[in-house]
Computed example of a mutant assay.
Amino acid sequence: MAVCGAVDIGGTKIRLGIVETGGRILAEKKLSTRMGRDGALCNLRELRDSFLELCQTAGARYEELEGIGIVCTGPVNCIDGVIENPYTLPGWEGLRICERLKEETGKDVFLEHDVNGALLGEIETHGLENQRVLMACFGTGIGVAVYDYDNRLYRAGHKYHPELGHMVIDSMVGAADTSCYCGQRGCFESLWSQTALNERAVRAGYEDFDGLYRSWVAGAAEAKEPMDVLCRYFQRGMWNLLLAFKPDVVILGGGVMENYYFLAADLLRRLAAGREDFLEDFEILPAGQEGSSALIGASVLVFGNQ
């Protein structure tokens, strides 16, 4: 079996591993994400040394690595191999990461947006080729990726991932809702990310969203209005995505879905019920274990370019 290096770069941690064809992760580890340009270059050197270490753990020779796939929180320019994200990776923007990591490792390097990478991993794991698959990840932000019938990722133009988490859901949000870093008020990310859910819950008198949710499930009258608003925001955002892409499969992922997948799936089913005039039938699936899909997707970048 062929093996490659796989990397998932986030705003707080970097996960990396040795992956073989078929998506089996042979060895992995985590690094802390360093900020600033010096920190980024330090992380690249750490990646080089870590791959040498992981190859020993996996029982593979470093020389056997067929390349390195990277998925990274965006925006990224995957064609030119450049990170363009000053929002959650300050100091990394403008870094030609494929070029620099190739200098460090001697391996060909491929770059993709992290949500696209996670979707590629889900396609590989579940055998979803030749279907239109929509993946929405709800965590610190909201990322959306689409895989089409021609077995390609949907892109905005030829270089970039479409930032669908920043489509405006409610332009008339209250004054307590701050503008997103995208420059808009009431975008999907500013209303249904983990941070946004907790902020709304605090304003409603709860410690966090989990407290609001539990109170709502228990039937507390005071929880009904804030939860109704949040449920409506989720359905409004997903309605737009469903109308735009008409998927066969919807995958819900990200940290929020680790606890609230069943709420979100139920809201989706209710949203689609009786709307066959607008929506095709679609299957709803939970994303796999956090991080694994991203590493598997990163490996697809390498093996798909052989």
Rank of each mutant, 00 (worst) to 15 (best):
T178Q: 06
T178P: 00
C180D: 00
Y181G: 00
C182A: 02
G183L: 02
Q184V: 05
Q184L: 05
Q184E: 11
Q184K: 07
G186A: 06
F188T: 05
F188I: 07
S190G: 08
L191S: 06
L191P: 02
L191R: 08
S193L: 10
Q194M: 06
Q194Y: 07
Q194F: 05
T195W: 10
T195E: 13
T195R: 13
A196Y: 12
L197T: 02
L197R: 02
L197M: 12
L197F: 12
N198A: 13
E199N: 13
R200K: 12
R200A: 14
A201F: 01
A201G: 11
A201N: 09
V202S: 04
V202H: 03
R203C: 09
E207G: 12
D208V: 05
D208S: 13
F209G: 02
F209Q: 02
F209R: 03
G211P: 09
R214V: 10
R214H: 14
V217R: 08
V217T: 03
A218V: 01
A218F: 02
A220Y: 02
A221K: 14
E222Y: 00
E222K: 00
E222W: 00
E222S: 00
K224S: 09
K224C: 06
K224H: 09
K224V: 12
P226D: 10
P226T: 04
P226L: 04
M227D: 01
V229W: 11
C231T: 07
R232E: 02
F234I: 08
R236W: 06
G237Q: 14
G237H: 15
M238W: 15
W239M: 15
N240A: 15
L242M: 15
L242H: 15
L243F: 15
L243I: 14
L243A: 15
K246I: 06
P247N: 14
D248F: 06
V249Y: 12
V250W: 12
V250Y: 13
I251K: 11
L252A: 10
G253Q: 04
G253F: 04
G254P: 05
G254D: 10
G254C: 05
G255C: 09
V256N: 10
M257L: 08
M257S: 07
E258Q: 13
